[in-house]
Computed example of a mutant assay.
Amino acid sequence: MPFCTQCGRPLAEGETCSCRNNSANITPPPPQSQYNGYGYQPYQQGYPQAPYGYGQPYPPYGQPPYAQQKKSNGWIVGLVIGIVLLFALIAAAILVPAMLGYTRKARLSNIRSEANVLRKAAETSMIEIDEEGSNVKGRYIISSDKKDNVAVPFDVDDFNARLDRYFEGAEKYKYFIVVNNGYVEYAALSESWTKKTEKIGTWPVGTDDKPREYSKDGSSVFSDKKTNLDTLYWKAYDEIFG
């Protein structure tokens, strides 16, 4: 005996069950809610949906408007630095020679002043020796190097001891003086006998570039600017005893 595959009712041979005709009009029951053991709906399986909708990806990360790269101002900085360096070079080109010239003139002025102090100290010492009865007559050369003393008529050691009291640079400088009857006609000093680069101070003074040479008649004779103290000494020697 056949049975209905829908409701299970037994059917006669060739009979069609009426449940099939009514199945299309039957509303299916609503799905039953499933609860967990505590009366609440169970947690959803898997990760929660994205806030932008199921299956929608998060928007790509990008820099905010304020973090956008600004235009580089490096060329402005480079230009300013270049201008500053240019002005610095121009200032150096002007000031350095001026400062060197000022330093050279200051050294020359100082060495000339020292030559004048030497002359005054020598004359003071000479006056003391003369007053004590020593002979100061004649023309002679007194030098810081004893071997270069020429025709000195009195005790040179006594003179040097007196000179040290009046001239503080007696130990620092190399010098010679030309004396005529107790009066200094010429004085020259430097920090070296032979270096042509050392400034030479003379009394009477020379020019800015050339030291003055000794002259018996008092005429103005100037030496080469690259001369040294030793050369001036031998020219004075030749002028007096040559």
Rank of each mutant, 00 (worst) to 15 (best):
Leu163Asp: 08
Tyr173Val: 08
Asp164Gln: 15
Val178Asn: 09
Val184Pro: 04
Asp148Ala: 14
Phe176Pro: 05
Val156Met: 00
Leu189Gln: 07
Asp164Asn: 15
Phe167Met: 06
Asn180Trp: 09
Lys147His: 11
Val178Gly: 11
Phe167Ile: 02
Pro153Ala: 05
Leu189Asn: 00
Lys147Met: 09
Ala187Leu: 03
Val150Met: 00
Asp145Glu: 08
Tyr175Met: 03
Asn149Pro: 00
Val150Glu: 10
Asp158Gly: 14
Asp158Lys: 13
Val156Pro: 12
Asp164Arg: 15
Asp155Ile: 03
Arg162Val: 09
Ser190Cys: 01
Asp158Cys: 13
Lys172Asn: 10
Ile177Met: 04
Glu171Cys: 01
Leu189Cys: 01
Val179Trp: 04
Phe159Arg: 04
Val156Trp: 07
Gly182Thr: 05
Tyr186Ala: 07
Val178Pro: 10
Asp164Phe: 12
Ala188Gly: 03
Val152Arg: 03
Asn181Gly: 09
Phe176His: 04
Tyr186Pro: 07
Phe167Leu: 09
Ala170Lys: 14
Ala187Ser: 01
Asp164Gly: 14
Asn180Met: 09
Ala151Val: 03
Tyr183Leu: 15
Val184Thr: 00
Gly169Val: 13
Asp157Cys: 01
Phe154Cys: 06
Ala170Pro: 12
Leu163Met: 00
Glu185Ser: 11
Lys147Arg: 13
Asp155Glu: 10
Val184Tyr: 03
Tyr186Ser: 11
Ser190Met: 01
Asp157Ile: 02
Asp164Glu: 12
Arg165Thr: 15
Asp155Ser: 09
Leu163Pro: 10
Lys174Val: 08
Ile177Val: 05
Ser192Gln: 01
Ser190Gln: 10
Ala151Asp: 12
Ser190Glu: 04
Lys146Gln: 14
Gly182Met: 07
Phe159Asn: 08
Val150Tyr: 08
Glu191Gln: 14
Lys147Gln: 12
Ala187Tyr: 03
Ser192Met: 02
Trp193Gly: 06
Ser192Val: 06
Ala161Gly: 14
Ala151Gly: 04
Tyr186Val: 03
Ala187Gly: 00
Tyr173His: 13
Ala151Arg: 08
Ala187Met: 01
Pro153Phe: 01
Tyr186Leu: 00
Ala161Trp: 04
Val184Gly: 06
Arg165Glu: 15
Gly169Gln: 14
Asp157Leu: 08
Val179Ala: 08
Glu191Met: 14
Arg165Ser: 14
Val152Cys: 08
Phe167Gln: 06
Val156Thr: 02
Lys147Cys: 09
Tyr183Lys: 15
Ala151Phe: 04
Glu191Trp: 14
Phe176Gly: 08
Val150Ile: 08
Ala188Cys: 08
Ala161Ile: 12
Ala187Glu: 00
Phe159Val: 05
Asn149Phe: 05
Lys174Ala: 05
Asp158His: 12
Glu191Gly: 13
Val150Gly: 13
Glu185Lys: 05
Leu189Trp: 05
Val179Glu: 00
Lys174Phe: 05
Ala161Arg: 12
Arg165Asn: 15
Ala161Glu: 13
Tyr175Asn: 05
Asn160Gln: 12
Val178Thr: 10
Lys174Ser: 11
Val179Phe: 03
Lys172Pro: 10
Glu185His: 02
